[in-house]
Amino acid sequence: MATPNTPLWEVFIRSRNGLAHKHVGSLHASDATMALQAARDIYTRRGEGLSIWVVPSTAITASDPAEKGMMFEPAESKIYRHPTFYEVPDEVGHM
């Protein structure tokens, strides 16, 4: 029988308690159970993680890098969203 291409998964690992899961790479596996086991073998051979997430790559919706200008423009013009935009007299000290 012709074997279909094995699906691709994205792997996320929480390195220590308190830190968010971070994308570390991808792998191929035919189902979620095997993806988790493969992620352990490929990405945590030296105690890199305490928790693993695997997500089918096809489930990810990504923004288009070609449209990043338009996509992120609203944040660029709003410098008043940053604390340094506001003036506080020196006498007041650290705020």
């Binding site: 074997t3 279909p4 094995t6 596996a29 035919s30 189902d31 095997m34």
Partner: peptide, 15 residues
């Protein structure tokens, strides 16, 4: 290793 790939694919499809 072909039979392993086939078995894994078949099992995943069945599930």
């Amino acid at each position: 290793g072909a039979w392993v790939r086939e078995a894994a694919a078949t099992y995943a499809a069945k599930r």
